[in-house]
Design a protein around this nucleic acid. Structure first.
Length: 642
DNA sequence: TTCTAAGTAAACATGT
DNA sequence: TACATGTTTACTTAGA
């Protein structure tokens, strides 16, 4: 019986390798693995070569430009004199960030700068990888916002300087005329080219390279070190030195983007300023339109642009990766090869229109993948893939449990986003049977299903469960009977299965990404101090999930508890979002619409008043009382109840 | 290495 | 009797 599955279980290696390696590769040179379009082209001029050529040309242009500036401004002079190099090449002066190619930017920035940028980006990507795919998009969005804020900040300062007369009006007119059509970064680029031109060798060094380690010819100058000290690239990505977005006139109302916590937030300054007036004075004195400030601004802008470019590239790579993983038209066995794929925004459609069972359909295309992967990919389940390739003894290709637990997968959202995929692809869902059963039950309108309905749900939702029915059905029954969280209820329709939320939460202590004691303390603060920590945490989650149901929410408790919430595979935390699609009702407890006759009888010896859970349960949702008693009796150590 | 949870298989009981 | 449903046990496996 087991032997026949051996051939099926070793099927995921190609996709696995592809997916995992792609996800983990940050120095892939633009995703050469993604479709191989950027691969090596031996013997002929590839796009990469052309890009290199363009980079060289851009480098030459940039160096000439900078040398031109340096030579034209070598003599000390006033700002007016410094404006003379306004006659920069129009192509450079008018070059918006969008017009500067990444390669040109890379050439404009010195190797140390690029290195610093790369480190930042790698750190960012590491963060993204660490937090997983799920956070990537939000992080990118946040980062993009940060970039925009910084651009606005810089522009604001520029405008401020203009208002204060520190910036000549000559370019301002042009800027104003362009202001309507150009983004802040465009304006800044224009401004920096027009007005803030480095006038000396140090400016050149600043622009070409802040670190002398690679610039031996200038290594004797002491300035670059100072300049590099004034350009703390690290201040950008974390955004610590930038305040939230402000209106361009807001600095007059008591705040300034470059001023915060009594410090000047100019890169590398950190001068203490007691009040805004002092800060303004400091800003005008120390960060006036001079070579240093201009160079700093220039470098900062380039940092921003570089990061933007990198962000765009990484986003594009991500898109390509996810698209690639979703669409494998050349797969010889598209449905017999379990593809554990990333989520796709295109798969968000609710599947009330299930395909005929047993008829696999081609996976839907993934045009706009938006669901990021988690640290432990919930869909690209390494565990799933792993077990598929290692489990030779199970006919169904066991997913090997705990995926959802381990990766804290919100099964509801996962299924909601990938329902089409799972429906069509012969992929074992990376969830435990218990999670799936629970999801099926909670997804139902009445939050109760007969065994046969559970079967149907499995086969309807997952192509994987359209075969080996005996195996997984047995597993379903086994889980239903085994886990106390599943409560058999007899109503007029016969026996149905419901979910005991508390019990379900209890069977797995929730994973707290933060301090586990936080939950305990907070719950203790809520008056549940008599419970043990794990049970408190479980209750917290259970309550959280149910507190999400509007009719049952007590705002303060919900708010405070929501702070504790960490996602796992619980449907309760995400079922509401499924409910938003109208597929199930979130609030009713089984006992609210059925008259339970609990078959699973277990000894109950505890007094009801010794169970603080009833407090919470009573507030949040109606619990199955008999099972509740049973559960509490079983899981709460008696010594802790005494 | 040990423990635990999950998955699988199977035996058995019960009801239709 | 066959089948569905439900329970229980045993075993294997993976992960902590």
């Amino acid at each position: 019986m087991m032997v026949e599955s051996a051939s099926e279980t070793i099927r995921t290696t190609p996709s696995n390798q592809n997916g995992v390696s792609s996800l983990s590769s940050q120095s892939d040179g633009g995703g050469g693995r993604e479709g191989g379009s950027n691969g090596d082209t031996n013997g002929e001029i590839s796009p990469v070569d052309l890009l290199h050529l363009q980079q060289q040309q851009a480098l030459q242009a940039a160096r000439q430009f900078l040398l031109q500036q340096a030579s034209g401004l070598n003599s000390p002079g006033s700002n007016e004199v410094k404006q003379s190099p306004v006659q920069v090449p129009v192509s450079m002066a008018m070059m918006s960030p969008q017009m500067i190619t990444p390669q040109q930017m890379q050439q404009i920035l010195s190797p140390p700068q690029l290195q610093a940028l790369l480190q930042q980006q790698q750190a960012l990507m590491l963060q993204q990888k660490t937090w997983g795919h799920y956070l990537t998009c939000s992080k990118q969005l946040a980062f993009q916002q940060q970039l925009i804020q910084m651009q606005q900040l810089q522009q604001q300062h520029i405008l401020n300087l203009q208002r204060q007369g520190l910036v000549p009006l000559q370019p301002t007119a042009a800027m104003q005329s362009l202001q309507q059509a150009m983004c802040p970064s465009d304006l800044q680029q224009l401004w920096k080219e027009v007005s803030g031109v480095p006038s000396s060798e140090e400016a050149l060094k600043q622009a070409e390279g802040l670190d002398l380690s690679t610039n031996s010819s200038n290594s004797t100058s002491a300035f670059p070190k100072a300049a590099s000290a004034h350009i703390p690239l690290h201040s950008l990505p974390n955004g610590q030195s930038h305040t939230p977005k402000r209106d361009s006139h807001e600095e007059h109302a008591g705040s300034h983007p470059l001023y915060g916590h009594g410090e000047c937030k100019w890169p590398g300054c950190e001068a203490l300023c007691e009040d805004m007036g002092q800060f303004i004075k400091h800003l005008n004195n120390e960060h006036a339109l001079d070579d240093r400030s201009t160079a700093q601004c220039r470098v900062q802008m380039q940092v921003v642009q570089q990061l933007e470019i990198q962000l765009a590239k990484e986003s594009e790579r991500l898109q390509a990766m996810m698209t690639h993983l979703h669409m494998r038209p050349s797969e010889p066995k598209p449905f017999n090869q379990p593809l554990n794929l990333a989520s796709s925004g295109s798969l968000l459609k609710r599947d009330s229109d299930a395909y005929p069972e047993g008829l696999p359909h081609p996976p839907t295309s993934a045009a706009t993948p938006i669901t990021p992967l988690r640290q432990g990919p919930s869909v690209i389940s390494s565990s799933s893939l792993h077990t598929h390739s290692h489990s030779h003894t199970h006919a169904v290709g066991p997913i090997r449990r705990r995926n959802s637990d381990k990766y804290c997968t919100p099964i509801a959202s996962e299924l909601a986003q990938n329902c089409e995929f799972y429906k069509n692809a012969d992929v074992r869902p990376p969830f435990t049977y218990a999670s799936l059963i629970r999801h099926a039950i909670l997804e139902s309108p009445d939050r109760q299903l007969t065994l046969n309905e559970i079967y149907n749900w499995f086969t309807r939702k997952f192509a994987y469960f359209r075969r080996n029915t005996a195996t997984w059905k047995n597993a379903v029954r086994h889980n239903l009977s085994l886990h106390k969280c599943f409560v058999r209820v007899e109503n007029v329709k016969g026996a149905v299965w419901t979910v005991d939320e508390v019990e379900y939460q209890k069977r797995r202590p929730p994973k707290m990404t933060g301090s586990p004691t936080l939950v305990k303390n907070m719950i203790s603060g809520l008056g549940f101090g008599s419970l043990n920590a794990s049970y408190q945490a479980a209750l917290a989650e259970s309550s959280l999930s149910l507190l999400n149901s509007p009719p049952l929410v007590t705002p303060p408790s919900a708010a405070s508890l929501n702070m504790l919430h960490v996602g796992h595979d619980d449907v309760s935390s995400t079922v509401e979002q499924v409910n938003s699609n109208g597929s199930c009702s979130p609030t009713l407890s089984p006992q609210q619409y059925s008259h339970p006759v609990h078959v699973k009888e277990e000894p109950t010896e505890l007094e009801e008043d010794s169970r603080p859970v009833s407090l919470l349960a009573g507030v949040t949702h109606s619990l199955p009382l008999p099972s509740d008693e049973r559960d509490l009796e079983e899981d709460l150590p008696t010594e802790e109840l005494e």
